[in-house]
């Protein structure tokens, strides 16, 4: 798996542990929600950097109180057609104020990259061999949005009424 972060292919320093493998202190750990809930104190004691993986049927409400201790929340797309994680990402960013990494895992394709980015994802696990260029091109294809979301981009509705853009629209 490769990781796209901040617009580039990055080395992934995180290890996704299965539920039975002991954690190593010096390796940032991604663990399942079940393991996190069962072993919270042990995990916090054994390693510094922790992330939790939520399946598509696991709502972020389950980790609301833990967010200050988490560097990463990974949200799973079991299939790209399962859009639950888009809502979860927005809740994490906009309602729960999570500022750490929100990582898209599972069936992550360039054609959904724009939606993921707009809903608050900032890291993307992609198939090996996928080019970053294709992903970056995907968000440049459409760069105008009507509605507000978790990103900070100005919406068309805002731009229509700011002086500089409004004169462009009238032109």
């Amino acid at each position: 798996m490769a990781l796209i972060k901040n617009g580039t292919l990055a080395a992934d320093i995180w290890h996704r542990y299965d539920d039975d493998t002991p954690l190593q202190a010096d390796i940032p750990a991604l663990v399942s929600l079940e393991r996190w809930q069962a072993e919270r104190e042990d995990i916090l004691a054994s390693t510094a950097d922790i992330g939790v993986v939520l399946r598509a049927d696991q709502h972020p409400d389950a980790i609301t109180g833990d967010l200050p201790r988490l560097q990463v929340v990974a949200l799973e797309f079991p299939a790209f057609t399962d859009g639950r994680a888009y809502s979860y990402a927005r809740l994490l960013r906009e309602r729960l104020g999570f500022e750490g990494e929100i990582r898209a895992i599972g069936n992550v394709l360039r054609d959904q990259y724009l939606f993921m980015q707009r809903t608050g994802f900032d890291a993307f696990e992609v198939k090996d061999g996928v080019t970053t260029r294709a992903f970056l091109a995907a968000i440049e294809e459409v760069d105008l949005y009507y509605q507000a979301s978790a990103d900070t981009a100005q919406t068309i509705w805002q731009r229509r009424h700011t002086t500089e853009d409004a004169s462009a629209a009238a032109a």
């Binding site: 939606f115 509605q147 979301s149």
Partner: peptide, 13 residues
């Protein structure tokens, strides 16, 4: 129409 067009959260309901 404008709000729902390419709404990033609701593209895969």
């Amino acid at each position: 129409r404008q709000w729902s067009t390419l709404h990033p959260e609701f593209a895969f309901l």
